[in-house]
C-alpha cells in the first residue's frame, strides 16, 4: 500500500470512530469530541492529498488545514458555551433532552 492509501485508511478509521462517538454518546461534550475527530479526519485527508498530490510546493493543503483548525477552535468555543448554557437550563447536558427549539 502506498503512503497515501495508508493515510486515507487512517483518516477513514478516525472518521468512523468520531462518527460512532458522536452518534452513540448522549453526553454533549462527547458528541462534540466526536465531531472534532471527524473534522481532524478530514484534515488528515487534506494534508495527505497535499503531500502526495501533484503540486506539493503550493502549500494549499496546509493553509486549508490551518483555517479548518482555527474555525474548529472557534466552533468548539461556541459549542462549549452552548453546552454551558444548556447545562444552566436543564441541569444536565444530555443531548436528547435539548430539543426545545424544534419547529
Amino acid at each position: 500500500m502506498s503512503p497515501l492509501q495508508l493515510c486515507l485508511l487512517l483518516s477513514s478509521l478516525l472518521f468512523c470512530v468520531g462518527l460512532v462517538g458522536a452518534l452513540a454518546r448522549s453526553n454533549t461534550i462527547l458528541v462534540l469530541l466526536g465531531v472534532e475527530l471527524m473534522l481532524n479526519a478530514a484534515n488528515i485527508n487534506f494534508i495527505a492529498f497535499w503531500r502526495y498530490g501533484p503540486n506539493p510546493a503550493a502549500g494549499t493543503g496546509v493553509l486549508f488545514v490551518l483555517f479548518a483548525i482555527a474555525v474548529a477552535a472557534a466552533e468548539a468555543a461556541v459549542g462549549l458555551a452552548l453546552v454551558i448554557a444548556v447545562y444552566r437550563h436543564q441541569k444536565n447536558i444530555r443531548l436528547q433532552e435539548a430539543n426545545r427549539l424544534k419547529g
Partner: peptide, 11 residues
C-alpha cells in the same frame, strides 16, 4: 416537522 431538535437525529 423535520426540525425535531434531536441533535442525534440530525447526526
Amino acid at each position: 416537522r423535520a426540525q425535531t431538535g434531536d441533535a442525534h437525529g440530525y447526526l
